[in-house]
Every structure is written in C-alpha cells, then in structure tokens.
Amino acid sequence: MKAKCYIRGCAAISPQESFAGHFAPQLLTLEGKSMMRVKEPDYSGFIPPNSLRRMSRVLKMGLVAALQCLRNSNTSVPGAIITGTGRGSLQDTEKFLHNIRDYAETALNPTPFIQSTYNSVNGLIALQQQCTEYNNTFVHRGFSFEHAVLDSMMQLAEGNATEVLTGAFDEMTDEHFYIKSRIGYWKNELTQPAELLDSNTTGSISGEGATFFLFSSKPSDICLEGIKMVYKPSGEELQQALQAFLSSQDIAAEEIDLLVSGRNGDTQYGHFYDGVEGEFSDARVFYFKPYCGEYDTAGAFGLWAAVKELEIGPAKTVLLYNNFYGEQHTFMLLRKAAI
C-alpha cells in the first residue's frame, strides 16, 4: 500500500493542558493511587444541551475531542470516521451491570446499555456532523487506535475518502482501576509520574484520554509515512520487524532524529524498549507515558505528542514505538514534509 497520509489537524483531551492545542509537558503530582485523570474542557460550546444531558463521560470526551479536531482542521464533514477504544464506556458498562443486579433485571434504564456499545461515540460524531460515509470502530487493546490508523490509510489509498477523522478514546473508573490492579496492571505503591521510568517495579500508572486526527491525502506539513504492527513478538522478532519497517520506508536508523517512546515503567516490558531505543543512539528520545499514563489507546497520545514535536521543530523525522503490556507493538514513521 502506498498512499500519502498527511495530518491536517489534531486535538487531545488528556491529563495535560492539551485541549488548547499546545503541548507544554507537565509532570503531575498524584494523590492516593497511581492514576491520572484527564483535564476535561467545557463541553457546552460543542454539544447542544439537549444532547449533552444524557451523555456519559467518555462519550463527551470522545465527541468533543473529535469536534475540536475538525475545527482545528477547518473541516466539518470528513469522508470517513474511524476510531479505536479498548474499553468503550466503562462507566456505562459498570452502571448497567450494577443495575441488573440492584433491580433484579426489572425496569432497567436503557441509556447505559446503549452507551456501553463500543461504537456509540462514532455514531454520535456521525450524527452531529451528518456524516453518512464509512464508519468503523476497532476494539483491541493496543491495536485499537493502530488499526483505526491503518484503516484510515487504506481509505485514502483506495480513494474512498480524501479526509478521514481518526481517533481514540478510553477512560478509567475507580472500579476498573481496582479490577486491573488485581492482575498487576498498576504499580502497587503510589508512584509519581516523575518517578515512573526509574521506579524499577512492575505495573504502570493508569491513564486515559481522547485524541483525534484529521488525515488527508492533500499535502500539508506533517506526513504519516507508515505504520507497522507486531503481535506478541519475541525481542528478536521485534528487532527484525523494526529493520524490515525501516527498509520498507527506505530510511536509515541515523535519519531518525526523534524517537517517541511508549516506555511505561513496567520492568516486565522494559527490554522491548531497550532494544528499540538501542537502535537509535543518535536520536533524542521523548517518553510520553509520564504525561498521559498507560491505557489501551495511549498510542494516540504518543502520536499527538510526535505531531506537536514536529510542529515546533527541530525534529524532522520521528519514529513512534509503543507496546501495550508486551503484546501489541506498533511503529509509526512521521516526517515533516518538504513543501
């Protein structure tokens, strides 16, 4: 597949002050547990009150990040809407599970069930923007956003769309934080973002976010050149996949001047990052998880951070590498286009 995929605009709701469009990385101070929450913007300027009243948290986050991205890109109706989410609306899923039990399966509110459906954010974006074109949602941990990106690149390559709105959203609830803590997803002791990468313990800090991009086949400043996903590789297979990806993109390791790395401070998966980072000794490395935390679609925040780095320079060629708990690994290559 050969198609140019330019990034015309983006928007992020994250634990950072990202919504306004700039990225001034701030290490937060957490209290109580190793969990970062997003800074929610004022949604009222984006969603009519009559629609807003029913929406749960991640629906608002997802919809508004998408709308802000469209605004930032001077577009209103994209040619396709494609998203990824690992968990969808956890709040609604939990509410419906609790209601089933509390009301013994009688007189149940339909709203949490409807909103627990993974594609509900996509449906809302399409509805609000009256976009009747291609619409898809991937729900596969660290391959949710990444397949949304691949699908988008294919849409552009096929000529089915010239502009694709592509994004990801995930939230964390206290209930789900506890559930995942039972199988070692998070650091046992309260760990501050500033200590995340040097903590030398297992688990990570939980994060969340909603991030959207407008991909276009029409040239603009920043180009997403390619993506490669690798499923459950050994360390050696990952290295081979990296080399194959670089050569398929016709680029030498020395040409990468910035590596955006998803290192999450979990010692179980550090060796993957060691291996990849070791290939780019000349490049500057930016670690994005201390700013957004770990979640299924954190890779989307990583891509957003890479775009922001390219916008301000001096980086011209960026490689993004991320994995989700050692199973789903992804490389993306970005370039500042010579226009």
Binding site: R54, T106, A107, P110
Partner: peptide
Amino acid sequence: SIDSLELMVLLER
C-alpha cells in the same frame, strides 16, 4: 424515543 423508554422506567419504578 430513548427518553420515552426512560419515562416508562420511571413509571415502573
């Protein structure tokens, strides 16, 4: 129509 379902829940509860 979703509100109408919610109102039916209200009547039932």
